[in-house]
Design a protein around this nucleic acid. Structure first.
Lengths: 358, 358
DNA sequence: CGGGTTTCTGAAAACGTTTTCAGACTACTG
DNA sequence: CAGTAGTCTGAAAACGTTTTCAGAAACCCG
């Protein structure tokens, strides 16, 4: 029950605690004989350094905060898993800051910042100016995933997304515009005339970008988006929304979904309604989660590689720690079209993008 | 860049730092006028207490470690999500300790313990006696999920599972025996004669219990397990293992799977091989993940309620914090059979267990 | 108005580390 | 052998809090 501190092992080894500290941190500048004495004393006592005390004085915790909403869906859970692995590999730990209810990320994030995390990854919600200011002042690197700084929740507009204060946050997003264009092209080439978008009722940044991208790409070809459905929160939200969408008087013949989970809901709904995929209805997802490749689905989707995203997150954190003043950087992760069996092959020109399976 | 400390706000408010501290912790025992002065000074400076320093002296971090392996699969990711929510609700944060490669949980867990977490939840790997000893000595509550203390990795034997030291860890597991019995009964009633089990190549505790439960239940009815397949690590492991299992010269006509993810692999493989479910092959999973209820799958499975598990985890932590000497407690979470469409209804007696959908 | 509570406040000692600064050796070097 | 550089070690001051202890001020009641 009683904690064993550096003094205990110093006393047992007959040295000062400074020496013990050096053994556990510096490694050099302590004679072999002393080191052995210290090590064996520490082992006998089962001593391990207190990270709280160490972090306090070193001003470095080896903790990284992750602000995230629900991580139940496939993409987010793999993201968390991959990020945690990448951090573990570098001796860092992940401190989870769950933002609840899709609101501003402040409360959860601030709570994690109080633990003096070395960096924060924000993959949920929107950051209020206060949170930005605090991060900027304390000087901890912030990497936004799937959003850019100072987004307006309602109608994000990339051109006008100027941060309200000089807040240095890097952001990493999928190339949503390109993905939406690939999807639109494939649907059109496949002969779809009534194209719909399926997004979430609580619109996140990427969701909006994908919808806008689809709209713009259709407009460029002289077409309009026929319908939009929004997924309500809850377990069967995607399925229900898809049912509504497909039960309309004039149902769409092609749906682009904000992510693969939503697309799976569409596939389920189509099956329930007896709608043939891809002949009567083409479906395209986003993310390329593992399940999309299952033989039972073979979902056409936009591949958004998680490992690449995580690598970039880590790289941005390191870069900003090395040079806190570097200008904020927006990174678009390139996406690829994965043509599988939920879309018709174009009757006209061949597909623009290769769809080699990895 | 410069941190604002308690002294800064004390100076600005013209009080001692003791007073500032009291405002941010005790709340009482400080006069209203002082409190206002302090609050406004703190706001002006953007002060927030340093949790490292606070935790150091209070010997309480409000951090809970979660030792976990891969969280990519549905059950584990929902578990993490639910646990993090439950902790957030009580003002605690989750520190992720990823154990990599399925080995002993030590390295990852110890790393998290160094941050003086208030409690640890272990949902992966096996704890070595050293890790147990350390937890016992430091006196932090440990709750094991899906395993009991001092399990032998190879062949866990509940009867002999005596902890090597007086290590007080509570454990929470599904009632795997009951679940396996329900599955066996349903398969037999459905007329299956060649029953197989699908588990993981790296056998975890629950995996072994479920296999043994199936074996015992079959034996009780004078039947033997026909085959066992093991899922290798990797994305398509379940699918590949199922393919092997179903391609055998005399393939099984009923499979009980260690979890729903594995069962999904079986369904995919059956579809790929043109095997009719449930007529030629009955499939039962475990966990009842949301996807199992999707109209495209309608997987018969054993419901293992996550929220109940998480509630129990929290309750055990609280109980042990309140009374560190209480005897360790093994809790079996009751499971329910969810009969859906991947099994045949029994031709004989009616089902033993109700299968009302929630 | 005096004694005794009660309420509030500040000085200072913790908490368990790291790290600077000297001091005390040893080991070269000429 | 003296001087100097080099290596190692310990005392003590940090890091940003909380908390004990005691003192000061206010209050109450006879």
């Amino acid at each position: 029950m009683e904690r064993v501190t550096i003094r205990d092992v110093a006393e047992r080894a007959g040295v000062s605690n400074a020496t013990v500290s050096r053994v556990f941190s510096d490694a050099h500048a302590v004679s072999p004989v002393m080191r052995d004495r210290v090590i064996s004393a520490a082992e006998a006592l089962g001593y391990r350094p207190n990270m709280l005390a160490r972090s306090l004085i070193r001003a470095k915790t080896n903790l990284v905060a992750l602000a995230v909403g629900e991580t139940k869906n496939a993409y987010d859970s793999i993201f968390v898993d991959t990020l945690a692995d990448a951090l573990a590999e570098r001796g860092k730990h992940l401190l989870l800051a769950k933002v609840r209810g899709g609101g501003p990320v402040d409360e959860a994030l601030m709570g994690a910042l109080d633990y003096q995390v070395d960096a924060a990854v924000v993959a949920a919600g929107t950051m209020t100016p206060e949170a930005c200011a605090r991060c900027a002042r304390v000087g901890i690197p912030v990497v936004l995933c799937g959003r850019v700084p100072a987004t307006l929740p309602a109608e994000p507009d990339l051109e006008e997304a100027v941060p309200p204060l000089p807040f240095l946050a890097d952001s990493i997003l999928a190339d949503n515009g390109a993905g939406a264009r690939m999807a639109a092209d494939l649907l059109i080439r496949g002969g779809c005339r009534r194209i719909a978008y399926l997004g979430r009722s609580h619109r996140a940044f990427s969701d909006s970008e994908r919808e806008r991208g689809l709209r713009d790409s259709l407009a460029a070809q002289g077409m309009a988006l026929q319908a939009t459905a929004r997924i309500a929160a809850g377990a069967d939200g995607a399925y229900d929304a898809a049912l509504r969408l497909l039960s309309a008087p004039e149902p769409p013949d092609g749906v682009f979904c904000m992510n693969d989970d939503a697309a799976m809901g569409v596939l389920q709904a189509a099956q329930a309604l007896g709608i043939a995929v891809p002949d009567e209805l083409a479906v395209i997802g986003f993310d390329n989660i593992p399940m999309a490749a299952w033989p039972g689905f073979r979902l056409t989707t936009i591949d958004y590689p998680i490992s690449r995203t995580v690598e970039t997150v880590i790289a941005r954190i390191d870069a900003r720690l090395a040079d806190p003043a570097r200008p904020p950087q927006v990174t678009r992760i390139p996406v690829r079209l994965m043509v599988r069996d939920t879309t018709r092959r174009g009757t006209g020109r061949p597909a623009v993008t290769s769809h080699k399976e990895t």
